[in-house]
Design a protein around this nucleic acid. Structure first.
Length: 557
RNA sequence: CUGCCCGUAGCUCAAUCGGAUAGAGCACCAGCCUUCUAAGCUGGGGGUUACAGGUUCGAUUCCUGUCGGGCAGGCCA
């Protein structure tokens, strides 16, 4: 419909007669938008205002000429000029109703696009180091990342979900030292406990399991503890595997699955780190100074150069990061989106600088980043900071157990990633109208209930005559349904899954209002069928939208 | 000190590459269940979009500055 109107406007604009400028040279950037105010029609264009300056004419006068030149269309019932020169299109009832059959035909694919054209896109998210249970911040990353993955898939991308973790380095040393201390009965209160050791209760669990010579399985690895408190190598492997398994359980509870797990250590063992370093040296963007090897990141927008190889040997953390991304590029990902906490924003410039220095055809804004801000958890009007198990933070599992998977996912994904989020536990667990998750799910369940009571043949609705659908609430609902594909497209372009959540709230609201205003199961057979078709289409869109969020669409509540 | 993100109703948040009278929910007030699920609906009050400039037909949106909150700034990850 939008394309149709754009075409009409384009034809009209080309026929404009101007003395000064030829119509061909006009900036024909035709914009059509959905007016907020229903009185302003179904679509609105600012074309006349855009042309006002080059044509040196009053926008309203231009609008008038445009409308005169507009070819007739059966989909348009009325066109008017409003405000400073907006051209407002009111669709004919037939055009408005068409969306219902469109939804019926496309089913679960309604709203999907082929923008990605099947090209490969990777989303890396969560990527927590195996040093403890996942916390709320990881939860936000998990919810946003997973929704993004679903969204991009709906927009036609071939999506790979990937989890990267650091299984070497200082934090892991710290972890194994903490576990070792616990194995020896040293607690955080003792002076012998590692200074910056992990103090949570879960470290005790790991120590116990280690001493019991347990076997843990996570990702591709399977490891059996030796049980020897002095075997640091064994402790490290065991602790990493143990915590990866823990995090797998967290993710499972959150209903999130990854396609690929990548280990930092693998980048060393398979030589990718070394070959990347050699390539960077060969590129001429490195230099030696103070016994260290530096990368001239300032040539690529950084505010200072960065050390690659430390004076005492060993690479700094960003080197394997660059090597990892070279690998992503080699794997053929046209786009890579890294979803991470905003506290990692300083790595963006460095990783991109490293990739640019290699000069292997990687675009300047590759990879892309979606950074989410902090999450604050509230209960009873007070901030919650402590979990019993983790000690210093609220775990994702606590949250899921307390408020449920659906509500947790919804609340963590329903807000713009770049603003700080307050997670109100009381609200999320409320089984009342306060809770937007239930509000949306309830709309779906209500429709299911009505369709059940109607007990007719749902397939027969595909040919239902929709012309009786002209009541105010019906028009509003039809309009909202027709917006869904645009919302999916736009949310994908903006990498903003929260738009889906907002849309669903609005759609649910339209349905509930309609439900209260009109009886669906009426005696008039034609009207009843039309209404069944409309609510069945609404049910489908609610389902499609909830699917994008990874939230269930219950048939009963 | 420097960089990035944010600042919208009492609270939590929206606002479609700059659009028309800035919208929801909660809370508050007044109504609606002998009728398809009241986990719902209808109406009401509540705003100088932190502040000051600028850009233009038009700014919550873009630019500059100030104030406030968060996060980074290591040869730590």
């Amino acid at each position: 419909m939008k394309a149709h109107l754009t075409e009409l406007l384009s034809i009209a604009a080309k026929s404009l007669n101007t003395d000064s400028i030829s119509a061909d040279s006009l900036p024909l950037d035709i914009q059509l938008e959905r007016p907020k105010n229903a009185d302003h029609g179904d679509f609105s264009s600012n074309l006349a205002m855009m042309l006002a300056k080059p044509l040196r004419q009053n926008p309203r006068a231009i609008a008038e000429s445009l409308i005169k030149a507009l070819p007739a269309s059966e989909y348009i019932s009325r066109i008017e000029i409003a405000g400073a020169g907006f051209i407002n299109f009111h669709l004919s009832p037939k055009a408005q109703q068409a969306v219902v059959h469109e939804i019926q035909q496309q089913g679960e694919r309604f709203g999907h696009h082929q923008t990605g054209g099947g090209r490969k896109l990777q989303i890396e998210f969560v990527s927590a180091n195996p040093t403890g249970p996942l916390h709320v911040g990881h939860g936000r990353g998990a919810a946003v990342g997973d929704c993004l993955a679903r969204l991009m898939k709906a927009n036609g991308w071939d999506v790979t979900r990937e989890f990267y973790y650091n299984d070497a380095g200082a934090q892991i040393d710290n972890l194994s030292k903490s576990v070792q201390a616990r194995c020896k009965g040293i607690s955080p209160e003792d002076t012998a406990f590692p200074e910056n050791g992990y103090r949570g209760e879960y470290i005790v669990d790991i120590a116990k399991a280690y001493l019991a010579k347990e076997t843990v399985i996570a990702d591709d690895m399977k490891f059996t503890a030796t049980g020897n408190p002095d075997d640091e190598e064994s402790i490290r492997h065991f602790a990493v595997a143990y915590l990866r398994h823990e995090q797998d359980l967290d993710l499972q509870a959150f209903q999130i699955q990854f396609d690929v797990f990548s280990l930092e250590s693998a980048l060393y063992t398979n030589g990718q780190v070394e070959s990347t370093v050699q390539a960077l040296i060969a590129s001429g963007h490195t230099y030696e100074q103070d016994e260290a090897l530096w990368l001239r990141t300032t040539e690529f927008g950084d505010d200072k150069d960065r050390v690659m190889r430390k004076k005492e040997g060993g690479y700094t953390y960003f080197v394997p990061d660059v090597a990892y991304h070279v690998g992503k590029w080699q794997r053929g990902f046209v786009r890579v989106i890294n979803e991470q906490g905003a506290d990692h924003h300083s790595t963006i410039t460095r990783v991109r600088a490293g990739l640019q220095a290699l000069d292997i055809g990687i675009p300047k804004v590759w990879p892309e980043y979606v950074l989410h801000q902090m999450v604050t958890v509230m209960r009873g009007g007070e901030e919650v900071k402590i979990s019993k198990r983790a000690g210093s933070y609220v775990t994702l599992r606590d949250l899921i157990e307390e408020v449920g998977c659906d509500a947790t996912r919804y609340f963590l994904a329903a807000r713009r990633a770049d603003s700080q989020l307050v997670f109100d536990i009381d609200l999320a667990r409320a089984q009342t109208n306060d809770n937007p998750v239930y509000y949306i799910q309830y709309a779906h369940a209500r429709i299911c209930s009505v369709l059940n009571q109607w007990n007719g043949d749902v397939k027969a609705l595909a040919t239902a005559d929709l012309s009786p659908l002209q009541a105010e609430h019906e028009t509003a609902l039809l309009k909202r349904l027709s917006e869904f594909p645009e919302v999916v497209y736009h949310a994908g372009e903006e990498l903003a899954p929260h738009m889906i959540a907002n849309y669903l709230k609005d759609l649910a609201s339209d349905l509930h209002s309609y439900y209260n205003a009109e009886q669906f199961l009426v005696a008039d057979e034609a009207l009843k069928l039309a209404r069944m078709a409309l609510i069945q289409a609404t049910q489908q869109v609610l389902k499609n939208g909830l699917q994008l969020l990874g939230v269930s669409a219950p048939e009963k509540m």
